[in-house]
Design a binder for these strands. Structure first.
Length: 372
DNA sequence: TCCTCTAACACTTTTGAATCGC
DNA sequence: AGCGATTCAAAAGTGTTAGAGG
């Protein structure tokens, strides 16, 4: 197993080992397309509505890819990862820790409906995960991502070379996430600033803003029959979960991390909320993410892209380490430990924690429950 | 009493079948 | 016949909020 150096003793990122697989010589780059919008929400404390029947995300995840091999097929996937091990509550205009997180619901992975497709397709235009829905219904049959209300999550994106969903389990993959996409799952908005921001940016909400709410106080609450099901099939539900993805072997997710581009990363700005929150108690601020982030070990490679730095497209090469259990980079938080904070100030963004316990992996597998 | 969740509501946007013209 | 553009009705999606329930 290729370990990443300890975060406190080696803040600089080690030089890249040579690529193990010749077919992965290119440098894949992933960017968050609507990162300005995400940052706007992130500065307040993003909330995502989850409903029994599934709710789309807003802002939705849209990523740009480059550096893929044009004629090689890739599968792009996305899943949700707990940002910490706490449950929250909204009290007195701010989020507070309300205890330990509830046991994780079934972990589901959403595969982009275009998958598999050649690299040229993915690089042609940004990938939108607009159709993905979030639900709090643990018995959901529609393949929506299941989350717990009042818990914090962030999306992860997985890129793997595969000619079909059935061969994913044998391919190495790259995992990327963006700190500014961390959100709190809620069944009703708590922070009015979030509501305002959503109304300002989400066209679907205009109806309420422009007069629709006036009649709410007098609305009739008689039961209405559910609307008839649309005849057309949602593309998301057309893709069934291949059996091979129900649980993937550890070795299939083995890739070697690359930590180049150090010189391109920029130090965190002094006004960055994360830096402020780093010294606060988790209960005092939404952005003060607890340090228990590293409790989760996904046994895959993950790259976190800085939220608060002026956005440099994060860039790293794809290459395999030959099938050994992989390391990962755990999500940085707004409540980063001092060492991590220092590292960020020096321009090194992500710092690895290394646990590698199989139990951790089984607790939160990447593809334990795949529906798309 | 407090907190969380659900469902109904009015409106806008999106979708896709049907139609038309070239 | 085939293709692209346009039209339009229906479906989908949105935040709000009263009420239910724990």
């Amino acid at each position: 197993m290729e370990h990443v150096s300890d975060s406190k003793s080696h803040l600089s990122i080690p030089p890249s080992p040579p690529a193990a697989d010749s077919y992965q010589q290119g440098c894949m780059r992933m960017t968050l397309e609507n990162d300005d919008l995400w940052k706007s929400f992130h500065n307040i404390g993003t909330e995502m509505i989850i409903t029994k029947h599934g709710r789309r995300m807003f802002p939705h995840c849209s990523i740009g890819l480059s550096g893929l091999q044009p004629f090689v097929n890739y599968v792009i996937m996305m899943d949700m990862v707990p940002a910490d091990s706490f449950k929250y509550k909204w009290k007195k205009e701010q989020w507070e820790v309300a205890g330990k997180a509830e046991p994780q619901p079934p972990c589901r992975t959403y595969m982009h409906p275009d998958s598999p497709a050649p690299g040229s397709h993915w690089m042609k235009q940004p990938l939108s995960f607009l159709r993905m829905k979030l639900t709090n219904n643990t018995l959901d049959q529609h393949g929506h991502i299941i989350l717990h209300s009042m818990h914090r999550y962030y999306p992860r994106f997985h890129v793997t070379q595969a000619d079909s969903p059935y061969t994913i389990c044998w391919a190495p993959f790259q995992t990327v996430s963006f700190p500014e996409t961390t959100f709190t799952a809620v069944t009703a908005y708590q922070n009015p600033r979030i509501t305002k921001l959503k109304i300002d940016h989400n066209p679907f909400a205009k109806g309420f803003r422009e007069g629709g709410t006036h009649s709410h106080s007098k609305r009739c609450r008689s039961k209405r029959s559910p609307p008839p099901k649309r005849a057309t099939l949602d593309r998301n539900t057309l893709c069934n979960s291949p059996p091979s993805l129900q649980r993937m072997p550890l070795t299939s997710q083995s890739v070697e991390a690359e930590r180049d581009q150090v010189s391109t990363r920029q130090p965190l700005k002094g006004a960055d909320l994360s830096a402020v929150a780093a010294e606060q108690d988790p209960s005092e601020s939404l952005h003060a993410e607890p340090l228990e982030l590293h409790e989760y070990d996904y046994s895959c490679e993950e790259q976190m892209v800085p939220a608060s730095v002026p956005y440099q497209p994060y860039r790293y090469p794809l290459h395999s380490n030959g099938g050994d259990a992989a390391h990962m980079v755990h999500p940085p938080s707004h409540g980063l430990a001092a060492a991590e904070h220092t590292a960020q100030q020096h321009g090194y963004y992500h710092l690895p924690h290394h646990h590698g316990h199989a139990a951790d992996w089984s607790q939160y597998p990447l593809f334990s429950y795949s529906c798309w």
